[in-house]
Simulated scan of single mutants.
Amino acid sequence: MLRLCFGLLIWAFCLSAFAQEEAAGRTVFLAGSGNGALDQHLTGLLQSQMGEGVNLRPITDDQIPMIGEEPVITIGPSAFSRIRQANRNVPILAMLVDRSFLDAFADRSPGRVSGILYDVPLIRQALTGKAILPHATRIALLATADSVELYEPLIDKLPAYGMSARIFLVESSDKLIPTLVRALGYGDFLLAAPDSAIYNPRTIKHILLTAYRRNRIVIGPTQAYVKAGSLASSYAPFPEMVQLASQFLDTYFETGEFPPPSYPEQFRVEINRQVARSLNIPLPSREDIAARVDRQLTVNGEAADE
């Protein structure tokens, strides 16, 4: 009899805890990138944005196969791949992933896979360079055979902004610098895309030094490269990405589906004033550059299409 009563008490306690959890709000699981500081920062921003009505929980590997309709936020491509491989039916909201990485997954699982895109649209990066060098009309692009397609949408859009671009194909690693020299001779500036085959920690120093010696600037590919020596790069601030992620989650809980992957509405600009001074380039403020880019995109109807 005592054993039965004890069992009933345990059952009642678990039922009560479950009811309290349901009353407290909805559950969203989080798969981190493995970078402790980054994961902690984003978790804090997400929890603050979503409020007390959402229970944000780190997910363990043994929980992944059992997830039904609870959405999972993944931070970075590795976390996304880990969740996707373990449970192809789980609804995923990806963060810190590029469009080129996510689009195929989202196309195969519309409404179930979506994301807040981390890369910056190349037209925005090109206009960032134009805001700094108003008389620039020609943009140099480096690509490999595998990454040429990254630039094709950009090339089609540039004439509307009074610019054109030419792709210089890097056929092998030992031809990177000679190809770069030819590209710098053509373009008013070099626009770098998130192409790790060309722009990576092993090559970036040589690329930036070569550009600097030829009195040319590099725009992009990310905020981190500005610290290494690129002159400027647009970027989406974390609070903007988190705000959009919260809106996507609200839509999911209301409709059972995520909106398609999207960029945040607001971007900021990182600049390297030391490089600008060395090249005798007058720099507007970061806010002024971002405002000029936004105006150009709005006038041409691009802002909503990025």
Rank of each mutant, 00 (worst) to 15 (best):
L150R: 14
S173E: 13
D294S: 03
A143G: 14
T43G: 07
A106D: 15
A94M: 02
D103Q: 11
E240V: 04
L102I: 07
L191D: 11
T128Y: 03
T203D: 09
E302R: 07
E70C: 11
S246I: 00
L133Y: 00
L249E: 05
P221D: 10
G115E: 03
P153L: 13
S78T: 09
V120Y: 01
I75K: 00
L45Y: 11
S230T: 14
I64Q: 06
H41G: 06
T251V: 13
P71W: 02
A232G: 10
Y151A: 10
Q223N: 14
A104E: 10
F253S: 13
R216P: 01
I207C: 07
L279T: 04
I289Y: 07
D61G: 05
P153G: 10
F189D: 01
T137E: 13
G185A: 06
P153M: 12
L133N: 00
E69K: 10
P121H: 04
E306A: 07
D98N: 11
G7F: 12
V97D: 05
Q20N: 14
P239S: 10
A303C: 09
A23S: 02
D294L: 01
R99N: 12
N300V: 00
A106H: 13
Q274D: 14
D250T: 12
M1K: 06
N272S: 09
L38K: 09
L249A: 03
G162T: 04
D61F: 04
P264A: 01
L142N: 09
S164C: 11
A37Q: 14
D107C: 10
A192N: 12
R292T: 13
E171H: 08
A79M: 04
T298M: 08
R182A: 06
Q125A: 06
S164W: 09
P91N: 07
S48C: 14
S114A: 11
Q20P: 04
V218A: 13
Y235P: 04
L158R: 06
T60A: 13
D146L: 14
A304E: 12
M95Y: 08
I92Q: 09
N272I: 05
Y235K: 03
T60K: 11
Y212I: 05
L209I: 07
I75A: 01
T179E: 02
E52R: 02
Y118G: 05
V90E: 07
A228C: 06
V299Q: 04
L96K: 03
P159K: 10
H135Y: 12
R57V: 00
G162N: 03
L158D: 05
V293E: 03
I289A: 08
Q296F: 06
I281E: 00
E22D: 10
A276C: 06
Q20E: 15
S234I: 06
R286N: 15
E302K: 05
A31K: 12
S147H: 09
R99K: 10
I67L: 15
V242K: 01
G25L: 04
T179H: 00
L117K: 00
C5K: 11
L176A: 03
F6L: 15
E254I: 02
D250K: 08
Q243T: 09
N55K: 05
R277N: 02
S48W: 12
N89L: 10
N87Y: 14
R286V: 13
S109V: 09
P91W: 03
L9Y: 08
Y186S: 08
N35L: 13
Y118P: 02
L283D: 01
D62S: 12
D188F: 03
G111F: 10
S172V: 07
D288L: 12
R166I: 07
R138D: 13
